[in-house]
């Protein structure tokens, strides 16, 4: 598996996509830091970008890579190597190289601006962690979709729709529910609903650092417990890890019975 991982990584790190992704984050982060000259403000602006773009790029490149490497996979499958290892290796190679582009692109400017010795270092680390987790989760989901859906166009369509749903439609429904059922005790529902969307989950994880003052303004015992202690952070991180494991388990299960 490590061999496949190395080669996938190697292959991807040379592709234009990796460079483009790296450069995008590098330039955006530099620009934000330059114009705001305030680390916490730049982190907030980047948070909005990371929460949208990491899932989108993870989804798109995950689907693209899965479909484009079909024949290569066939070549590999004919070699004495486990199926599981091929797909896991490819997935980790893709998610790893994307994460690397992201982490370097965003990290280098922040390091230049001295985030490691500032009070914002944990906020930055949380943002970095969320971005990496989202990359892993969404490229995993795309792998799963590509595994289930033979048709490339349909596969891409499904992946984009899934992204659109989780990035915006879900929150819309969520918001409507919160407003319509305002009279009901909603805090448990609100917290639970957030756990079922990895983008919301990452957002809340970052907010537990950045906007804790505002979050603690909400009256509700469960909510207070969640936000007021390290428990909330713990739950968010665990849920994100579970989210990352889910698509991997999914595509590894479907790959076993798939024909090539």
């Amino acid at each position: 598996m490590t061999r496949i991982l190395t080669y996938s990584c190697y292959d991807l790190l040379r592709s234009r996509w990796s460079y483009a992704y790296f450069l995008f984050y590098l330039i955006t982060t530099l620009a934000l830091l330059y114009f705001s000259s305030d680390l916490s403000k730049a982190i907030i602006s980047l948070m909005n970008i990371v929460l949208i773009l990491s899932p989108l790029i993870g989804t798109m490149l995950g689907a693209m890579y899965s479909y484009n490497s079909r024949e290569f996979v066939e070549l590999l499958l004919a070699q004495p190597i486990r199926r599981r290892d091929i797909f896991l290796g490819q997935y980790l190679g893709l998610a790893g190289s994307l994460s690397l582009s992201f982490a370097l692109g965003m990290g280098i400017p922040f390091l230049i601006y001295g985030v490691q010795v500032s009070a914002e270092v944990w906020n930055f680390a949380t943002l970095l962690f969320s971005g990496v987790m989202l990359t892993f989760i969404f490229s995993g989901l795309a792998f799963w979709i590509a595994m289930k859906q033979e048709d490339k166009t349909r596969g891409f369509g499904t992946a984009i729709l899934l992204w659109l749903f989780l990035a915006i439609v879900y929150d819309g429904i969520f918001l409507l529910a919160l407003i319509l059922f305002e009279a009901w005790p909603l805090e448990k529902f609100a917290l639970a609903a957030s756990l079922f969307n990895p983008i919301d989950l990452s957002r809340i994880l970052i907010m537990l650092k950045l906007d804790i003052s505002a979050l603690l303004g909400y009256t509700g015992a469960v909510f207070q417990q969640f936000a007021g202690s390290t428990r909330g952070m713990f739950i968010c991180v665990l849920s994100l890890l579970a989210w990352a494991a889910l698509p991997v388990a999914g595509f590894l299960y479907s790959c076993k019975r798939k024909d090539f």
Binding site: M47, A167, D171, E182, A190, D200, I204, A214, L215
Partner: peptide
């Protein structure tokens, strides 16, 4: 108006 919506702070929709 509905305080529970604080959970959606900083989402794209908002």
């Amino acid at each position: 108006e509905s305080p529970a919506t604080i959970i959606l702070l900083r989402c794209l929709l908002m």
